[in-house]
Amino acid sequence: MTTSTAPGTRTDEWNLADIDLAGYLARTGHPAVEAPTAAALRSLAEAHVRAIPFENIDVVLGQHKGIDVSVINSKILRGDRGGYCYEHQMLFGGVLERLGYRVRRLMARGKADRSGPHTHMMLVVTAEGQDFLTDIGYGANMLRPIPLVDGVVVDQGGWELRLEDDNGWWVLSKRVGDEWEVMYGFDLIERRRVDYEVAHHYVSTHPKSPFTGQTVVMRLEPGLSRRLVGHTLTVERPDGTATSTEVAAEDLDRTLRELGVVLTASELAALRATW
C-alpha cells in the first residue's frame, strides 16, 4: 500500500502544513506558481539548486537536529545554509505538494552497479500527465527534472545524464568522457517517513557513511560545478577541465561563503578544529 494520493486527500505524514511556502519562494527567488505545470516544475527545481547548496556541515559537527520540516525551515529558509538529500527533498517535496503536484518519495541505491545501500532520497513528480525524476539533493549533478522515460538523455548545465529502465529498476548515469558512470539505481516503491528517519540516522552517524568524516559542500550552475570535499575545492567545467585547490583553515570561512554557506562563529571554530 502506498502513502501518496491526489493532492489534498492524503494524511499529513510529511508535515505539509509546516511548509513555509512564501519563505521558500523568497529564498529561491522564484515567482508565485499559478498552476502545477511541467515548465514550472523545471524552473522551481533549477531555482532551488542555484539558491540552496548541498552541504553536510551539521553532520560533521555532530549537531544535526533532524529532518522535520520545522527544523529545515529554520536552517535553510531563515539562514544561509543548505543541507543534504533528506533536507532538500523533504522541503522540495512538500513545496511541490502544496503547489498541487503529485509527488512520490522514493529511495535510491548508491553505486547501483556495486553494493551501495538504499540511503538516497529522491522524488518522482507528475506534471501534466508526465512523470519526472526530480532530484535537487544529489550534490552538483542535476539542475532540472528528467522525464521518467527509458533511454532519455538530458543536458544538466552542460553535463549529460541518462535514465534507463531495466525491468522496473531505473538506473541514472552520467557521461564522463566516452563512458557512462552509474550514479544510482531505484525502483518506484514509495517510502514512508520512518524510512528516511532510519536512513538519516545511518548517514549522519555511522563511521562508514561518506558524510560523517569529511566536509562536503557542492554547488551546480550552468557550465560550472564546484565541490568542496574534505579540504579540496574542485572547480569543473563541462569540457572536462578542472582545477583543484587545497583550502587552508584560515581560508575556510571565505570559501564556504563563496559556496553559499554562512556559519556562526562557534560553528566555524568547531569546523576549523576538524581541519
Score class of each variant (00 low, 15 high):
His88Ile: 00
Asp80Ile: 00
Gly151Thr: 06
Trp159His: 11
Glu197Lys: 08
Ser244Ala: 12
Ala273Phe: 01
Gly29Gln: 06
Trp169Val: 09
Ser115Phe: 00
Ala140Pro: 05
Arg27Phe: 06
Tyr202Ile: 07
Phe92Gly: 00
Trp169Asn: 09
Lys65Thr: 02
Leu263Arg: 08
Val182Arg: 13
Arg144Glu: 04
Gly110Met: 13
Ala6Arg: 15
Val235Ile: 14
Gly82Trp: 04
Thr126Val: 13
Leu133Asp: 06
Leu41Ile: 11
Asp131Ser: 15
Gly223Met: 12
Lys174Pro: 00
Ile57Phe: 15
Asp195Cys: 01
Lys111Val: 04
Gly213Val: 02
Leu228Pro: 02
Leu91Glu: 10
Gly137Trp: 10
Leu91Gln: 06
Val216Gln: 15
Thr264Tyr: 02
Gly93His: 08
Leu233Val: 03
Ala270Arg: 15
Arg254Asn: 06
Gly168Tyr: 13
Pro145Leu: 05
Ala32Glu: 11
Glu236Asn: 03
Trp169Met: 08
Val33Met: 05
Trp14Cys: 05
Val229Glu: 13
Glu190Gln: 05
Thr255Glu: 06
Arg227Lys: 13
Val176Ala: 14
Arg104Asn: 10
Arg10Pro: 04
Met107Thr: 09
Arg237Ala: 01
Met1Pro: 09
Ala35Pro: 00
Leu263Gly: 01
Gly157His: 02
Thr119Cys: 05
Thr11Met: 09
Ser173Pro: 05
Val153Trp: 04
Glu46Cys: 07
Arg114Lys: 12
Arg109Gly: 06
Arg50Ala: 05
Ala108Tyr: 12
Ile67Asn: 12
Ala273Glu: 13
Gly139Pro: 10
Asp20Ile: 02
Arg78Phe: 07
Gly79Leu: 01
Ala35Val: 01
Gly151Trp: 13
Val124Cys: 14
Val69Gly: 08
Tyr24Gly: 05
Ser225Ala: 06
Ser244Trp: 02
Gly158Ser: 10
Leu44His: 08
Gly62Asn: 07
Phe132Met: 09
Glu46Asn: 03
Gly168Ile: 10
Val235Phe: 07
